[in-house]
């Protein structure tokens, strides 16, 4: 007997490769979306700082815009720089 697989449909769930489960700012799961967004994933991506902390992009942008003088990572208080 020979089994020929003509097509295989499987199920997977995606997740961000991050060192934490929840966004430090909005406390929502990374795999969910920030409070302003409706759709997770592409519509509400994560960004990493050079300090290796990561946030929902909308959350960190909101934070950075509210800081007048220095733009610091809200977790470690180092200067925030986007990881290339």
């Amino acid at each position: 007997m020979k089994v020929v697989i003509k097509s295989w449909t499987s199920v997977a769930s995606w997740r961000w490769i991050a060192n934490d489960d929840n966004c430090g700012i909005c406390r929502m799961p990374f795999d969910g979306c920030c409070t302003d967004c409706k759709m997770p994933g592409d519509d509400c991506p994560l960004v990493w700082g050079q300090c290796s902390h990561c946030f929902h992009i909308h959350c960190i942008m909101k934070w950075l815009n509210s800081q007048q003088v220095h733009q610091l990572c809200p977790m470690c208080r180092q200067e925030w720089k986007f990881k290339e």
């Binding site: 697989i5 997977a12 769930s13 995606w14």
Partner: peptide, 23 residues
């Protein structure tokens, strides 16, 4: 395709279309 994202397979779920070639 999607940087920084990965997949967790749930292998027991799905649908397979296959041919059995018997004698």
């Amino acid at each position: 395709l999607k940087g920084n994202r990965t997949l967790c397979w749930k292998g027991h779920l799905g649908l397979v279309n296959l041919d059995l070639q018997l004698k």
